[in-house]
């Protein structure tokens, strides 16, 4: 895959400024700039800065609001699919898993995937949804699933592969937890098998791939200029 993919944002004016007058890094094709970007891409510390905490929180809250919407729309799909097909309802699950992927890819710190997904779940639960406390347990499990993938890569690689795997792992974690929380162990093996496949695929695509695309597009807007994820847009593969 070419480094810039379909989102080539390099402009004839490599440097532009945002409204506050702080400079924003636009993707530049000059080799020097790419090198500097690559150097900045390696986080110098695993300690969370204030901006990491606050932006992770903002993403968590925003994702929680998306959940509230999806709890109605996505759940309608989920239940309709569930009623006619065994286990295919899992296709809708991916969106509920996107918090962990976004958190991991943007913040790039240990615990980010877990924190964002958990916070989104708490927001969704406290505002009120059909699952109550289960939501928080689900957030914990799903965030942990994504977190394990980023940890397995030593918090050093944040490409599309890691994103897709994190989404899939979050799906697998969700499936496992539901065996107990929703009493799914009481369902037939055929249902569970199909459900596993759809949940994991949905996680890989709707959370993993979509999350990766969103982060890449966010980086192109300059909004992530305080994060390594926003400074190495030309580095992504």
């Amino acid at each position: 895959m070419p480094a810039q993919g379909g989102q080539h944002i390099s402009s004839p004016v490599p440097l532009s400024t945002n409204r506050k007058g702080t400079t924003v890094h636009n993707a530049s094709t000059t080799p020097e700039a790419t090198e500097t970007g690559a150097a900045a891409a390696i986080p110098s510390s695993n300690r969370w800065r204030v901006v990491d905490i606050v932006v992770a929180s903002v993403i968590g809250v925003a994702t929680g609001l998306v959940f509230l919407f999806w709890n109605n729309v996505g759940y309608a799909w989920f239940s309709a699919a569930d009623a006619v097909t065994p286990g295919l309802g899992g296709v809708a699950v991916g969106i509920w898993l996107i918090g962990g992927v976004l958190g991991g890819l943007i913040i790039r710190k240990p615990g980010a995937a877990l924190y964002v997904e958990l916070l989104a779940a708490i927001v969704s639960a406290l505002v009120g949804n059909q699952w109550g406390i289960e939501t928080i347990y689900s957030g914990l499990a799903q965030g942990l699933g994504a977190e394990l993938v980023f940890a397995a890569f030593g918090y050093k690689r944040f490409g599309v592969l890691q994103a897709v795997l994190a989404g899939a792992a979050a799906g697998a974690a969700a499936w496992t937890l539901e065996l107990f929380l929703s009493g799914n162990l009481q369902k037939s093996a055929e249902f569970l098998g199909l459900y596993f496949v759809t949940v994991v695929l949905s996680g890989a695509i709707l959370a993993g791939l979509l999350g990766w695309l969103v982060v890449r597009a966010l980086a192109a807007t300059g909004a992530l200029h305080r994060f390594a994820a926003g400074r190495d847009v030309t580095e992504r593969v």
Binding site: R49, V50, V51, V54, V58, L218
Partner: peptide
């Protein structure tokens, strides 16, 4: 709209972080 909201949210979050740090937070 969801994407633009995320952009605005992250911008605001970054500014809020600066404001919080300026008050000795962290």
């Amino acid at each position: 709209m969801a994407f633009a909201l995320l952009v605005l949210a992250i911008r605001r979050g970054s500014k809020l972080a600066t404001a919080m740090e300026a008050r000795g937070f962290g």
